[in-house]
């Protein structure tokens, strides 16, 4: 008997890239995302609390790799580019910042 009160997960996730700005970051991360057949829905960049930050909203529905594999690929790519990459389902932000 599963819990009926929980809404199914949307399949959307937020990719956050934090580090210093340099050539090729967006290209590198976007390529890794595209290779996983994950669609980028939106992208923004700004300087937040003195960190250069890029935030992408991606759609995992139709992804050809698991969440875990995608995470590992993005983190590896981030390490190669010298930035920190996080990917989290959007629901965690909804839970913490929306009533």
């Amino acid at each position: 008997m599963a819990d009926k009160t929980v809404a199914p997960l949307s399949g959307r996730a937020i990719v956050t890239i934090i580090g210093s700005d340099k050539v090729g970051i967006i290209a590198g991360i976007s390529t890794a995302i595209a290779e996983a057949e994950v669609n980028i829905l939106d992208i923004s960049q700004s300087v937040l609390r003195e960190f250069f930050t890029m935030i992408m909203m991606v759609d995992l529905n139709g992804a050809k790799v698991s969440f875990e594999e995608l995470t590992n690929q993005l983190v590896a790519k981030g390490t190669a580019l010298g930035v920190r990459v996080e990917i989290q389902r959007e629901e965690i932000f909804t839970a913490m910042h929306r009533i």
Binding site: I14, T16, D42, L48, F51, I55, M57, F93, T94, H97
Partner: peptide, 17 residues
Amino acid sequence: MRHLSFSGEEIIDTISM
């Protein structure tokens, strides 16, 4: 932004928590 319903501040806030 079209799809992003969170501000960058909110996202960074969660990550730094």
